[in-house]
Write a protein that binds this DNA or RNA. Structure first.
Lengths: 217, 217
DNA sequence: TATTGGTTGTGATATTTTTCACAGCGCTAT
DNA sequence: ATAGCGCTGTGAAAAATATCACAACCAATA
């Protein structure tokens, strides 16, 4: 497994998305500055990032989109498609399922789990949903590595502990709770509250900047 | 408006949440290393971060939680409670509404907007929901600065443009689309797909690390 | 064939962020 | 008193990340 900066990885993922869009528009080659522009990056960063994964372009035509997408995939994805599970089938859980059903990535939601008996053992938005009791055995039987945690804050810690115990190595956590898990488990926190507070902060900063600018003119 | 590193701001927001939890448990003082432990940070970072906002603790008792929460609030929040709007009332929109109804922050979702006539002009999870046609006038009349964008990918760009035109200065974007807007608008992207790919990548790295370790033993 | 123009890949440099490490402080205990 | 302890605040060093800037390249054109 290569060592890579977190920020670089995020950008690589983004580049791939933008490249897929370009490719479906019929584009075949792209220059670093174009890719930078549509990804909110800079050309130097793009070139460095691609250097990290050992990809080379041509000085004349730039990067060949198709092969670059492949190289990015080789780097980012596992060799086999990856099954993930979803824990929590409330509004957010449903949103996540719908979101990933549309997409044809190498990532598939294999099943959802929810403690609410009313929802269980059925299909939610086309995804099989079981009672939480079955979660650990499902993980073990299907060798699941990654889980999306979309349960209420109060249930998050217990659910995460169960996931870790069953052998999960990555959790995408939407609950506004800090999970304390052994460092064999990678946790990515996506807290809406934090995101909104951050946005509000910068919105304020942005407005003040504009106001100030007007003051000078 | 103070200049502050993005990462520092994120940590400050996190500290506040953890401090609120500690306070409600009855704790009154906290040391930098305790706050670090529950926030996934380090004591040196905590001290630096609090230095940034000019907060001082005592060498003997540490930081007084109550006053620190207040200082953090003064720094992070606007002086008045902030109204935000939600664009898109699908599964994700509903999840966001429920999520923020529970919370008693200085951030309130004033209204939701959706182009689907069937859902509109009613209450969704207790939040008033109107037709998208009314969005721009609502923003102007209520001086809304911040919007949460939770529409399908195909609609995101148009919606964002409308928001920017109406004077929004901050967008929390859940659509998997790069928004191109004037730099007077701050955009915070929260792309689920990217988050999941990232988690999967590190889950794989984590598993390989463990496997390797076992190989040595 | 020579020149031009626009790009890549990458050393070198600059900037940002984190960590180290310790002086100085105030309480406690002797 | 005063010695000792464990903390904070912060200069200074280190590490991580981003930017600069340019040699090398190659197609197109003269």
């Amino acid at each position: 497994m290569p060592i890579i900066a977190v920020k670089t990885l995020e950008r690589l993922i983004l580049y791939r998305r933008q490249l897929l869009a370009l490719f479906s528009e019929g584009k075949r080659f792209v220059f670093s500055h174009d890719l930078a522009a549509i990804s909110g990056s800079t050309s130097a960063k793009v070139r460095r990032d691609l250097m990290e994964i050992g990809y080379s372009g041509s000085t004349v035509r730039g990067y060949e989109i198709k092969s670059l997408i492949r190289s990015l995939g080789d780097f980012i994805d596992a060799s086999k498609p990856l099954s993930v599970i979803l824990v929590g089938a409330g509004d957010l859980g449903k949103a996540i399922i719908s979101y990933f059903l549309e997409r044809r990535e190498k990532l598939v939601i294999a099943a959802a789990f929810d403690p609410d008996a009313g929802k269980t053992d059925g299909l939610i938005r086309g995804c099989p949903c079981f009672h939480t009791d079955r979660m650990q055995s499902f993980i073990r039987e299907n060798d699941i590595q990654v889980a999306i945690l979309a349960v209420p804050a109060g249930e998050a810690r217990a659910a995460a502990a169960a996931l870790a115990e069953a052998g999960i190595t990555g959790i995408l956590n939407y609950a506004p709770v800090r999970l304390e898990l052994p460092d064999t488990v990678y946790v990515e926190n996506r807290d809406m509250c934090m995101a909104l507070e951050k946005t509000a902060f910068y919105a304020r900063a942005s407005r003040e900047r504009v106001t100030m600018r007007e003051g000078f003119s």
